[in-house]
Design a protein around this nucleic acid. Structure first.
Lengths: 224, 224
DNA sequence: TCTTTTGTGATAGTATTACTACGAACAAAA
DNA sequence: TTTTGTTCGTAGTAATACTATCACAAAAGA
């Protein structure tokens, strides 16, 4: 199944909607590839323009700067994961099973049922892990937050929070546990690939082991 | 008590040892202030030079670039916290008490017994929370890691790992739990101040509540 | 005492990055 | 045919990142 997965993005994130033209779509698709290839610090609009090919000025007509473009991509990523989780939780009623499924989807490497092109999916996964926190780790975070640029991230955390509440309504730290789960799923994935002494899964690099750790962590907290 | 707290830093981090001259010390001290003030992205050697005051070229004689300077500061921070923990765990034998003490020191806002000047201490705390992960979230992470630039961070995680092992030798994820604890203590602190809907402590902003959450998280996992 | 060496910081650059003003091309509407 | 608007490209500027080289002073040697 490959349907056209379109997310209505916060219009303040772009100057001109990239979904509205071929050039815009090219910019987004190529940006995913280039960001993955050279990383956020080395990424420039000039290099992106060269790869498309177009000119720097054209890209500036779509996005104010590379930070806004990064937020745009990360927002797509979280909206997509959010949708995936809602879709997959459709017929699950047991909260414990729901949590397990959520963890499975957060740690995905190869997700068979995809609504994005494979290139975009793997690229966005990588970018979310390696560059995601750069969206909010900025002096400008409070202003960006006022413009609701982190809404997709908050929405997915809130949804997970609700499932935790459903599992144990007496647990007082559902918000923090939800954001910790999301953050940890990414940071541990990064550590196991790049800073092996910070994770127990660096030898096999098996995402399933990471999932067991996360389940243990979440249920340990919720069952206390 | 205020002793001269000096850490032997990885010499590959600098071109010329900043501890070896007045100018070097000024660069480090002023960098802490400026980073805290304007954040890593806006931080430039030119602005730093203006504040000292000296010239850009002088700073380049000490540090190759601002990323190396950031790693230098973050390494000081973790070495300092490491020392603090070892110092405070000196007379504690009960592993449970040790873990509680570790969590308390990781979340410190105002630490009474300090071996750094107050300005440096608060500054480094802020920088570690808001900019710390930028040290390794880089395409260059594997090369930086080969030069052991993340050793102080790994050392503190390893020490915490050993305490976890001491508490429960059957728990299989001590490395990951240790790095998760360290990361979460920072990310939740950031969230409660800037992205309040991602944390349960945003209302009171009381670090003690965060500590309770972290204790619950760690003991929940270890007691499973 | 007089050189020479060494360490230090300043001057004055270049290349790259981030961003903008303006104009050409083209198509749809009048 | 003219007008209007949309889209993209040309050609800049300002700031940032980094370097080659010079000037000076203190220390070391003759």
């Amino acid at each position: 199944m490959l349907i056209d997965f379109k997310i209505k993005q916060n219009p303040k994130l772009f100057i001109k909607d990239p979904e509205g033209s071929e050039m815009g779509k090219q910019i987004v698709a190529t940006a995913i590839g280039l960001l993955q290839e050279i990383g956020y610090e080395q990424f420039t609009f000039k290099k992106l323009a060269f790869k498309i090919p177009t000119t720097e000025a054209t890209i500036y007509r779509y996005f104010e700067n590379k930070h806004k473009l990064l937020i745009y991509l990360i927002d797509i990523y979280w909206s997509y994961i959010h949708f995936q989780i809602v879709f997959n939780l459709n017929n699950v009623s047991n909260p414990k099973e729901k949590i397990k499924k959520i963890i499975d989807l957060l740690v995905w490497e190869d997700n068979s049922e995809s609504f994005l092109s494979e290139l975009d999916q793997k690229g966005l996964f990588y970018i979310a892990i390696a560059e995601g926190s750069k969206t909010y780790l900025s002096k400008d975070v409070d202003n960006l937050n006022k413009d609701a640029f982190f809404k997709p991230y908050k929405d997915i955390c809130e949804m997970i929070e609700m499932v935790f509440k459903e599992y144990n309504s007496n647990y007082n730290y559902c918000k923090s546990l939800a954001s910790t789960l999301v953050e940890t799923s990414h940071s541990q994935y990064f550590f196991m690939h790049h800073l092996p002494r910070l994770s127990d899964f660096s030898k096999n690099k098996n995402p399933k082991e990471l999932e067991v750790f996360l389940e243990n962590l979440v249920f340990g907290a919720l069952n206390n």
